[in-house]
Design a protein around this nucleic acid. Structure first.
Lengths: 306, 306
DNA sequence: AGCCCGATGTTTCACGTGAAACATCGGCTC
DNA sequence: GAGCCGATGTTTCACGTGAAACATCGGGCT
């Protein structure tokens, strides 16, 4: 079983992109890669083995290697050796050989540096565990589209039994992000196709989940070029609760009445439980002064000029 | 000289991320890669040459190849051949050989597919032109930090004489984005270090440009955890133009007077040339009705209930 | 049956990014 | 000197993303 990710509650955020989150590993996976107590039955600590006994795993779905990074890493390894052991398991198909689970880049760079031996951490891992590690690494890439990401989360949940909280920690996102990504998978195929095609964003698509006719709404959104806030509001409209609908109608009537009375655009944002805000748009200072006079009543103090 | 990018005015945008922009090439570079009239002196159209005569360029700064993608591409090439010619120039150091300018991935995949010949488009390109192409490809990567991006734009401007408009087209961004990125380079080193460290976002940093003491302001922003809007407002405060300051003071005074008079929170967003908006926050319906009565004057029609 | 709690579903909206809009500059032409 | 225009500088704010907050569910326990 993959390690349960350990989540630090209430961690403060830095501004903008979090470099540790963007570039480094989520904590759960770091635990696996040798710095923390290991998962899976350990077969001893780190030791060195001849580099030619190692090979990449056929279970790994995708690996990116920047040539420049490999060259830089090779130089560093030539100077200082491999500082962090490569995680391997005994190769199920070749006795005496090892299959790389994590650290293939360092292995390739060590070859470039012409090392003869590299340090390894050997773990007995089943195929499903190796696949899980590979899945997590893939999910940490920055260029997956929302449905690819959601599919990965789905697999982690279904095949590895992870909770949403656990997945969130493994990939460095919030639980609600994972939950909302998973919900995208429940959309009709047509809507998912528009999402894939970039005609809808994940925010638009998410707002359509649970509506009566997401395909029809999606067509409206695309045709009218609605933004996500507008989409969220549109998705809420059908089937409206009578009270909310009546309140909305009353708010609209109020806005209209008031606009007629004062001759300016009026908007009321009403939230039954929290009060709200009334906004009046004015074009000239005279209009503003008129509004202020009305608000103060005729006996109010004279308004100073701007 | 690199081709001038051709910009389509008024192109409609799709929702969310634009796949053509995210995955494909900006139009300027596409023009260079063989589909449109070529840049540089052409030495004939596409022709095939033995694959072993090609080699990668030492001028290319970084190349990413996903193993899975290479494998897939190799399969496709094995089935259908190399459909788009690889852009090469005669190797300056090895007569009779070619240096790959663009298309190295296809070359590597063609090797995997064990092709003997590949189609190439040969161009006489100077080092500076090859570097320019490499720079543009690098800038199209998604994971550059703001200062790396800005440095790339700076080089395209300084070394290749591109206007901001031209650079914008080449990298698929707006001219103002390029301009604002370049402005980040004018910040003091300390502020740039905080930007690199993720303690400030590009938006925060940008707001500090041109202020009297960006380092001191940056410290305040980090210490108080200000958001970008707050940062923008803070950056505007020192040294204020007298008229703007007076207008702000008057707006503040008006807000205060009005809030006192009606007993509710009041905000005025005033733009001298465009009018503005007066917003009143209410907590209960009675408060709303009171405001409406005042606005209508005492003789107004009775307000219907919500 | 009721309560609690972990897990999940859903909604709202603050946020930084990125572009539109506006401002300024300098070279060129008349 | 005035006007124009391309290029650049600067400010404002709409946008979708992502997380907080809230809502719901179901299993376990009493």
């Amino acid at each position: 079983m993959l390690p349960e990710p350990n989540r630090e509650p209430g961690e403060p955020e830095s501004h903008g992109a979090d470099p540790a989150r963007r570039r480094g590993l989520a904590k759960g996976l770091s635990a696996l890669l040798g710095d923390a107590p290991a998962a899976g039955p350990a077969t001893g600590g780190a030791r060195t083995v001849p580099i030619e006994l190692l090979g990449p795993s056929p279970l790994q779905p995708r690996r990116l290697f920047a040539e420049e990074d490999l060259a830089d890493l090779a130089q560093s390894i030539a100077a200082q050796g491999v500082l962090q052991p490569i995680l391997v398991r005994p190769d199920p198909k070749a006795h005496g050989r090892y299959e790389i689970v994590a650290g293939e880049r360092r292995w390739r760079a060590a070859q470039r540096a012409r090392l003869h031996e590299v340090p390894v951490l050997v773990r007995e891992l089943r195929d499903v565990e190796v696949l899980g590690i590979a899945l997590i690494e893939n999910l940490q890439r920055a260029d997956l589209n929302p449905l690819e990401e959601a599919s990965g989360y789905q697999r982690l949940a279904a095949e590895f039994g992870h909770t949403q909280d656990a997945i969130a920690d493994l990939v460095g996102k919030s639980r609600s992000h994972v939950a909302n990504a998973l919900r995208l998978l429940t959309l009709p195929g047509e809507v998912k196709a528009w999402l894939d095609a970039g005609k809808l964003s994940a925010g638009h698509a998410r707002a359509l989940i649970g509506t009566n006719d997401p395909v029809a709404l999606a067509r409206v959104i695309i045709a009218r070029g609605l933004n996500v806030r507008q989409t969220e509001r549109l998705a809420k409209k059908g089937p409206p609760r009578p009270r909310t609908q009546r309140a909305d109608a009353n708010v609209k009537a109020l806005e209209h009445d008031l606009a007629e009375a004062i001759g300016l655009d009026v908007a009321v944002r009403h939230a039954p439980k929290h009060g709200g805000a009334l906004t009046i748009k004015y074009k000239t200072l005279d209009q503003l002064y008129d509004v202020v006079r009305r608000l103060k009543g005729d006996s109010g103090p004279r308004v100073r000029s701007l």
